[in-house]
Design a protein around this nucleic acid. Structure first.
Lengths: 237, 237
DNA sequence: CCAAAAGTGTTGCAACTACACCCATGG
DNA sequence: CCATGGGTGTAGTTGCAACACTTTTGG
């Protein structure tokens, strides 16, 4: 409860950031959700903005706190400022307050009107080490293809994040940030297919990716199967 | 000074909106700037957010207050949240305070940290009727090709607005919103050239625009010149 | 006739799609 | 040999750019 108790002094009132953290795992595109202490309410990874901190830095900090990672792809995509986006959810807040054992002041601050800026983050599943923080007791990587009811307007934030992710896919080389250091060509294709929600023709896809001239092929190969092993690739310096 | 005097009660603290209002006039793309009372400081059209008003509605309201128009193209493009974007400009605020005869409380509120969401607006020059409001004594339609030093980080806001405008140009049919009800084909081309900052081949451009199938040609024509008069077009319903 | 406006035709380029086909490799 | 992975060739399409050329119309 440290963050919330210090709230009115250390943090900007009425302003928050919410990060949609994407990973690729088990052949699916997933995003990070956190469950509030002792409740069944799931939210995106959010946080407040320090009095002397830029909102972009706040998003970076929240991401580092939750994932243990620095230097990750992070991009702002929209500012959610509807009246009632959280004010109309006093019941949800009251439940959370009760569950996490907050004081009345905290609830007043939490349930006062907030404007939240949304960020898309893209990380390598194998490198993430999720820390729950003070208000959550569980986390989950949620498949984007399965609907899950989220806190407040976080479903809307997720939808807009997915649109932004697709827009950035080629220009910002999103797919390679979702994969480990080395990967096979079909893994790249699976990432693209998961993000675009469509299947792609293998031969044309490989030509497109290789023509970018950003990959180098590593001669070491997979072992195991009763057939040819796929090549491994990694990003050129 | 009405708005500012009521500030701490009626408006959300620390949050504002800034609108970059574009028009097409004298064959140039221009944006609205306002000069603070008795000063030489020029800013974009900004405003605060009502306690019970969504930020998108606040932007709409600011736009209606300044231009007299409703139902105009308006789109959010970025949330500016650097620490110091206005806090480091106490000198500018002190000058404005002096010029507009504000009380100390107002200055404290004004110069406290603000986070501002940027909006692009696109309007028909012939329909705009600019109202100065309480803190400005002059306005100007500024050519985007000429640099002008603006208040705080408003030059950066303008730059990002222009990028957004170009991105929306085709998808949101921006050009037709910058023109009056009826227009000639070469006027449309001039708008495109002003926004893109490049010249286009007439024949190919006309083919592209007409193939959109959104225009109808009006048989009435211009009068005057010693040559064929251009056709007039208007958007289909 | 001239000048400006409006429109057509054609050529070539680049990107993408679909699909046929071939080679490589490990068992 | 088979199954899987990796890659080439090619034909068709689409969109766009460049440019030549024709037609319309008012004076």
């Amino acid at each position: 409860m440290k963050n919330i108790e210090h709230s009115s002094k250390d943090w900007l009132p009425g302003i928050s950031v919410d990060c949609v953290v994407f990973v690729f795992h088990e052949n699916q595109l997933k995003y990070l959700t956190l469950k509030f202490l002792n409740s069944d309410i799931w939210s995106l990874a959010g946080g407040y903005v320090g009095n002397r901190e830029s909102i972009n830095d706040a998003a970076k900090r929240v991401l580092t706190e939750r994932t243990g990672l620095t230097n990750i792809f992070l991009e702002q995509f929209y500012c959610f400022g509807e009246f009632g986006r959280n004010v109309n959810a006093r019941a949800e807040f009251a439940k959370i307050k009760n569950d996490i054992g907050s004081t009345t002041d905290d609830l007043d601050w939490l349930s006062s009107r907030f404007i939240s800026t949304g960020y898309v983050a893209v990380v390598d599943y194998e490198k993430v080490n999720v820390s729950l923080g003070d208000v959550s007791d569980q986390f989950m990587w949620q498949n984007v293809r399965e609907f899950k009811q989220l806190f407040l307007d976080h479903n809307e934030i997720l939808d807009k994040a997915l649109v932004k992710l697709r827009e950035c896919l080629d220009a910002k080389l999103i797919a390679f940030r979702l994969l480990p250091e080395t990967f096979t060509m079909s893994e790249i294709q699976q990432v693209y297919e998961a993000i675009l929600g469509a299947s792609l023709v293998r031969t044309n896809f490989q030509r497109k990716i290789l023509s970018l001239n950003i990959l180098e092929r590593i001669e070491k190969k997979f072992s195991g199967g009763a057939h040819k092993a796929p090549y491994l690739y990694r990003l050129k310096k």
